[in-house]
Every structure is written in C-alpha cells, then in structure tokens.
C-alpha cells in the first residue's frame, strides 16, 4: 500500500521529528510536553468526563469534543511524566481542528512514523498508540447517529 495521505498539520509534526537526529527528537518531544495546554475552565472541574489511557505508564486522561464535526482533544498528564505529556500534546495539536472523518481515517500506526521508537523505546511508544485508539473510539461514540 502506498503511503497514506495524512492531514498537513500531522505531516508537519512528523516531518519535524524525522528532520532531527535521535537526541534532538527527544528535545522536540520535551517541547511538546511543555506546550500541553491547560484544560479550559469549562473542563477543569470535570474529571468525570475524562477517560484514563490504560496503555500509558503514567496517569493520563483524555477527552474529545466534536463540534460541527470538528474535533477538539483535551488531555492532562502530570509534570513528572514528560514523555506521556509529550505524546498527549502531539495528539492534541495534531488532531484538534480536523474533521472527525480525518481523525478516523488516520492510520493507527501514526505514532510509529515519528521516528521515536529508537529514542524512547517501542514499549513507551505504545502509550501514544493507546491514546490515539481511545481518541478515535470517543469520536466514534460521539458521532454515532
């Protein structure tokens, strides 16, 4: 199968990672971790809405909002888990603003295309795969007629 077309904002993130040496990919992941936005006030007091991502080694919670078929993703993860924060932040930035169909069509292997498996280990990367799978599941539930 030829390489799947992916939305430009995700392709940009992927190409940024692949443009760096291994060590600098970690630095970029750290920048993503630092950029993970705080929850908007309307969700800050609603931990009940968030789904725990069991595949991650550290407690990370995600919540997907679909409005007029546009996806918004929110996530929280503790400061002492920067790798997990970085993964969440990549998805928050990469998925938010896409249509629900665009996210659902995205390959489940997207996390494996970032060139991170050597830098962080394949095992750790599974956390991000789990996050993406749960995000898609939430979108399916929210867009089901």
């Amino acid at each position: 199968m030829s390489e799947q077309q992916i939305p430009s904002q995700l392709a940009e993130i992927r190409d940024d990672f692949l443009g760096f040496e291994l060590r600098d990919r970690l630095q970029l992941l750290l920048e993503f971790a630092n950029e993970l936005p705080e929850l908007p006030a309307r969700y800050a007091d609603h931990p009940d809405l968030f789904e725990r991502v069991e595949e991650c080694q550290s407690p990370v919670f995600i919540f997907i909002e679909v409005e007029n078929d546009i996806v918004h993703m929110f996530a929280t993860a503790p400061a002492e888990a920067p790798t997990t924060r970085g993964f969440a932040s990549i998805l928050v930035q990469g998925l938010s603003g896409l249509s629900s169909a665009e996210v659902l069509e995205l390959s489940d292997d997207f996390p494996q295309t970032l060139g991170l498996s050597q830098a962080v280990s394949p095992l750790r990367l599974r956390g991000m795969t789990g996050m993406l799978a749960r995000a898609k599941r939430q979108i399916r539930l929210k867009t089901a007629v």
Partner: peptide, 27 residues
C-alpha cells in the same frame, strides 16, 4: 528513570543520565 524525558526537565547538578531502554538494553 522510567520516564525517558524526566532528566531533561531538571536533575541533580552534575548528574548524568543512563536510560535502561536505550542505554542498558541490547538494541
């Protein structure tokens, strides 16, 4: 650490990082 990026967020002065996945395990 368990978290491969935790050292980068701050560590003891002069400490070096050794990661079990990427440094101690055979690839």
């Amino acid at each position: 650490d368990e978290d491969v990026l935790l050292y980068e967020t701050g560590h003891i002065r002069g400490a070096v990082k050794i990661d079990w996945h990427t440094d101690l395990n055979d690839p």
